[in-house]
């Protein structure tokens, strides 16, 4: 086997990047470009498929195979590709509107099937490309062009939704934290099956500073509940403890360190990850970041292809003449 020695530059296309100055997408792009050499997959076997929205321009800026498809439908196209071409590494790039509004149905079904897709959901809690309407993750009461008196919709919690859809890998990271995002990408790539990564992403034009509490040095250490497998889940000020069948947020010092929940990403019970997901609210005062859930479950494409190889092993490959002449036939002389 020849050593693959690619660099970030090899994954950078010749296209001029056209997001707004200050957009969180820049740092995500840079992190992904830097990570891809480490993936260890030849460039030609990497495919990025996106839907519609600001983030969905992403594939143009990567020198891999890529498709900028239609609104909400990227998981469908990516599913067809990943199932029929198990040799490829297929990524889906999507936003909160693309994957949770128009494409909500496809997202949940890709996750429940556990197709081998790495889904990067850029959540900026706003519609950017259509110029500033509220999105399905916008906090209730959001004043936007389409909701001058405030939005009425209860927002989706993408992590809770994914866990409810039987996702086998669910994680959250932040656009500006390259190191953390890289770690999450690494774990997602090692996971067999669907991986959903919610990435909090700043939109400097229509929802600027939405995630500042998680980025400002003064507040972030208190707000980020860091989830690391095998370690207690806590921020600088708070931690999680078991409370009956659920979890409870407590101030550090009010309980013994040994009472804090030790994170287990492989916990087979989805209600554990679900309970974790409920701590991220619109106020963003206590937000779990890291991997919520990483469990083994049969990957869809390999099962599809397994049914085919099994029947061929048992009965031999299909023969067209035998097929056409099967059933009741008769001969006219």
């Amino acid at each position: 086997m020849t050593e693959i020695t690619l660099t970030k530059k090899d994954f950078t296309s010749d296209q001029e990047v056209k997001w707004c100055p200050g957009c969180g997408d820049y740092s995500i792009l840079s992190t992904v470009q830097s990570y891809l050499p480490e993936l260890g997959v030849p460039r030609e076997n990497v495919v990025f498929i996106s839907g519609i929205g600001c983030s969905s321009r992403f594939p143009y800026y990567l020198n891999t195979y890529g498709m900028h498809s239609i609104h909400g439908r990227a998981p469908t196209i990516a599913s067809g590709l990943a199932i029929s071409r198990p040799d490829l590494s297929v990524f889906v790039i999507t936003g909160d509107g693309d994957s949770l509004s128009i494409g909500g149905n496809h997202l949940i079904h890709a996750l429940r099937r556990n197709v081998n897709l790495k889904i990067l959901l850029f959540n900026n809690r706003i519609y950017g490309l259509t110029k500033g309407q509220y999105s399905p993750t916008s906090e209730q009461g959001k004043v936007t062009k389409s909701t001058p008196l405030g939005s009425l919709d209860t927002p989706f919690n993408p992590i809770s939704l994914a866990i409810g859809a039987e996702a086998s890998f669910v994680a959250r990271s932040i656009d500006s934290d390259r190191k953390h995002l890289t770690e999450v990408l690494r774990a997602a790539s090692a996971h067999k099956g669907s991986a959903l990564i919610e990435i909090y992403q700043n939109c400097p034009i229509f929802n600027d500073g939405a995630f500042d509490s998680l980025k400002d040095n003064e507040t972030k250490e208190g707000a980020l509940l860091k989830m690391v497998h095998g370690e207690p889940i806590k921020s600088a000020t708070h931690g999680l403890v078991h409370a009956g069948s659920s979890l409870k947020l407590v101030e550090l010092g009010s309980v013994a360190e040994s009472d804090l929940v030790v994170h287990d990403v492989h916990n087979p019970d989805p209600s554990y990850a679900f309970a974790l997901s409920r701590f991220s609210n619109s106020k963003l005062d206590h937000v779990p970041v890291g991997i919520f859930r990483d469990v083994e479950r049969a990957e869809y494409g390999s099962q599809v292809n397994g049914q085919i190889s099994d029947i061929i092993a048992a009965q031999g490959a299909g023969d067209l003449k035998t097929l056409l002449t099967s059933g009741d036939t008769w001969t006219v002389a």
Partner: peptide, 8 residues
Amino acid sequence: GAALGASY
């Protein structure tokens, strides 16, 4: 969508 992805 899946059919088109497979064609691709």
